[in-house]
Design a protein around this nucleic acid. Sequence first.
DNA 1: GAATTCTTATTTGTATGCAAGTTTGTATTT
DNA 2: AAATACAAACTTGCATACAAATAAGAATTC
Lengths: 234, 234
Amino acid sequence: MAQQPANPLAEQVYIRIKDEIFDFHLLPGDRFTETDLSLRLGVSRTPVRDALYRLRREGYLEVGYRSGWSVVPFDFERFDELYDLRIMLEETAVERLCQVEGEQPLAGLKAVWLVAEDQRETDSHKMAALDEAFHCTLVEAAGNREMLRVHRELTEKIRIIRRLDFLKDNRISATYDEHAKILRLILRRKSTEAAILLRSHITQSKNEVRKITLHMLHEARGAMQRGSEMASAR
Amino acid sequence: MAQQPANPLAEQVYIRIKDEIFDFHLLPGDRFTETDLSLRLGVSRTPVRDALYRLRREGYLEVGYRSGWSVVPFDFERFDELYDLRIMLEETAVERLCQVEGEQPLAGLKAVWLVAEDQRETDSHKMAALDEAFHCTLVEAAGNREMLRVHRELTEKIRIIRRLDFLKDNRISATYDEHAKILRLILRRKSTEAAILLRSHITQSKNEVRKITLHMLHEARGAMQRGSEMASAR
DNA sequence: GAATTCTTATTTGTATGCAAGTTTGTATTT
DNA sequence: AAATACAAACTTGCATACAAATAAGAATTC
């Protein structure tokens, strides 16, 4: 019943390459060719090309005219701008949620974030996923599909550095506290306060990310790989 | 010196098909195949496919698994949501522009919009282009490239109906008046008033668009075609 | 006559072939 | 020894060939 994706192979290749970028197997600046990939993945160049061009349009890769592909280097200014866009989208979402009459569609969030301390998640990977889900749900509940689409794309693009944020565990508990506060404010329709808190919450993440240097990236690379080895070993 | 686009043929095909959609040569619901297009345009299926998949990702086309392509039908709710997204982006831009110290980078706009009545543009095509440029410039001047990118994509997506707005010529003079007011408010750093006026200005366009029925679309098709014939005949 | 099944033609997804242009390594020259 | 010129190998962009799945139509059955 689940309808087949448009071109299955290209989709798989897309996910695979993106994962390799996010797991820092493919590092910013790395160069490779279409033939490399098609041999390594065991498919022809056609689906590989489809996936590569998609990733190019999304800003992850660049291609030189007959001179190969490369992973685009990190651009921290761009991340800053994405965070600002994110603040704008989520603030708008929160304001709309506070104006909504009747029950707000945020029941799922309560079950995750309004829990006792010993119920909290500690794994940084899972925490990153929960954090994403929290913010996406806010935007989704606001009911504008285009804003949701933009927010989703944006979320994908900052995921690579957002994951690094949760490697410090004080960030995990801080996130729990702030999410809980924001959620309570929304449920009580304190629009302005919720928006202010949300803005400072995201700004904090943004500032944490600023501190991330290339040195930290390499440290993180190790952590990520150990993490995924552990994950795949169970 | 102008660097070659990544794949020239695919790019041309992309522009061509998009134009055909916007000029209502390809109507919502129309079906076609890759081979059709490749024969009609005289290129192979490869660049055609590249272009089609790009248009699909942008929401203009859909493809059935081994059963051909079709132009997606109009979704007026989606247009509404795009207009709301647009309001949010431009309001933010205006607020930022009012906070900027020193000279604002809006000199170009003054020359276009703060002119005597007899200097005003009357052609609906050119008017639509000027209107687009006005709003894009606002966002661009605010300095966030990601917001600008989203705004550009959005502008592309509503262009198809925005053009219809200026077929009524009272909309042209109203637009001139409102743009002039907004611009003056920004230059005088009246942030709140500028934002309010901008919001109502865009909302008006949004409401005009709501009135557009499929019947109007067909009328407009004639006008568009006559327009482009006249344009190409001189 | 209507519904159903099977066959055939159509359509996209994937693989491969070819050509134009770039890069890289080598040989030659100064 | 350094720089330059040249050639061969690569790399992408586009075209074409093939395969799998779908849709449409004809034949058949009730």
